[in-house]
Amino acid sequence: MSNPTQQLTDQGVSIWLDDLSRRRITTGNLADLIANHNVTGITTNPTIFAGAISHGEGYQDQVAELAGRGADADQAIFEITTTDVRDACDIMNGVYESTGHVDGRVSIEVSPDLSDDTAATTAQAALLWKTVDRRNAYIKIPATRASLPSITASIAAGISVNVTLIFSLDRYAEVVEAYLAGLEQARAAGLDLSEIFSVASFFVSRVDTEVDKRIAALGTDAATALKSKAGIANARLAYELFETSFATDRAKALLAAGAHLQRPLWASTGVKDPSLPDTLYVTELVAPGVVNTMPEKTLDAVADHGVITGDTVTGNYADAHAVLDSLADVGIDFADVTQLLEEEGVSKFVASWHQLADTVTEALSAAAGADK
């Protein structure tokens, strides 16, 4: 009998690791995860890079070289992170080729400081794409209102995009619109649509964290019965929207011209409530053609004891709608929840980015002092 990660793969779920460090690259750990845990992609974000660089392992030589050139923190972060992503792309290249360029992907994020600056986001996305210089990279752009035009512009320029920080169905619909508009512009410019890829990263566990806090404050039996159900319900309805959005005549025309589906990606799939099963946001979100990006702890749990029962999404749309309707009935404003989570998501990444800048500044100063 195949192991749980192979069973997920057989169900059409792409397993991506939500972590990257130079140590993973240089020790063979990443190659091992590809070979033994069916890992077919990697996502990164400012928090992940802050953790990796703060531990320093594998970065000393490059930091010393950057310090010798007089690089500031922003320049150093750019060079360090693009180096890691480029090297990881090279390790993933075999997967990229064997999956017809669908997987084998490594994501790198534009600076979260730019989330409200459309022009700057678009420019940095293009610079990251050019600097990494690997077709199997993804440029992560947040699904803030200001960044939606950047998604369209990037897709139109032939840049593959991972749209991140999606919490609401309404915003997800806008993301799909931005993708389709970008494809139409790319087609009009004569670009090969078959070489443009995108995923839409829908966050899961953070939804439960916020909703369950409000459920606890209400304290009623009706509210308590909904505990830890919102995140999965919201994601399942995102998949329903994915199916209907790409069944339109507009989408079909682009697909017929060589374009690809913008796959749903389940992000924030590590369980934050210890009372919940540690594989919950994996086993309950199995559907064809999705990506599940997992922290290593979750990946290990799935590999060890995950129970994969087949598609757990498409037959559950009615129940998912009922969960959101019931949340409204008990007085939880779900639109307020998702708006708050988007704002908090950007703020958390900004804070991590500044922490990363402080860490790199200290490392550059220490390296410069050691050379004197």
Rank of each mutant, 00 (worst) to 15 (best):
M1R: 14
M1H: 13
N3F: 07
N3H: 08
G12K: 11
I15K: 00
L20E: 00
S21R: 08
I25V: 15
L33W: 08
L33K: 14
A35Q: 06
N36M: 09
T40K: 10
G41S: 15
N45C: 11
P46C: 03
P46T: 06
F49I: 08
G51M: 04
G51P: 04
A52T: 02
A52E: 01
S54D: 09
E57I: 08
Q60D: 11
Q62G: 02
R69V: 13
A71E: 05
D72N: 15
I77H: 07
F78N: 12
E79W: 03
D84E: 05
D84Y: 06
D84C: 07
R86G: 14
M92G: 04
G94M: 12
V95W: 00
H101S: 14
D103M: 07
I108D: 01
P112G: 01
L114I: 03
L114N: 02
L114A: 10
D117S: 12
A123P: 00
A123R: 10
W129P: 00
T131N: 14
R135D: 06
L148E: 01
P149W: 07
I151K: 07
T152F: 00
T152D: 01
A157C: 00
S168L: 15
L169D: 05
D170M: 07
D170C: 04
Y172M: 15
A178E: 06
A181L: 11
G182E: 02
G182Q: 05
A186D: 01
R187N: 13
L191R: 15
L191Q: 08
D192E: 14
I196W: 03
S198W: 01
V199S: 10
V207W: 01
D208S: 14
T209W: 00
T209S: 12
E210S: 12
K213G: 09
I215E: 12
A217M: 13
D221I: 07
A222K: 10
A223F: 13
A225V: 01
A225E: 06
L226C: 12
K229R: 15
K229T: 13
R236S: 05
L237F: 10
L241S: 15
F246T: 02
R250D: 13
K252A: 08
A259Q: 07
H260F: 06
Q262R: 15
T269V: 09
G270D: 05
S275V: 08
P277N: 02
V286N: 02
A287G: 14
E296C: 14
E296Y: 09
A301T: 02
A301P: 05
H305G: 14
G306Q: 10
I308M: 09
T309V: 09
V313Y: 01
T314M: 13
Y317Q: 02
A328L: 05
V330E: 07
I332D: 03
I332E: 04
D333L: 13
A335R: 14
A335Y: 06
V337E: 01
T338G: 15
Q339E: 11
L340Q: 10
L340E: 15
E343L: 10
E343I: 15
V350N: 05
A351Y: 12
W353Y: 14
D358G: 02
T361C: 01
A363R: 12
G369H: 12
G369C: 07
K372W: 13
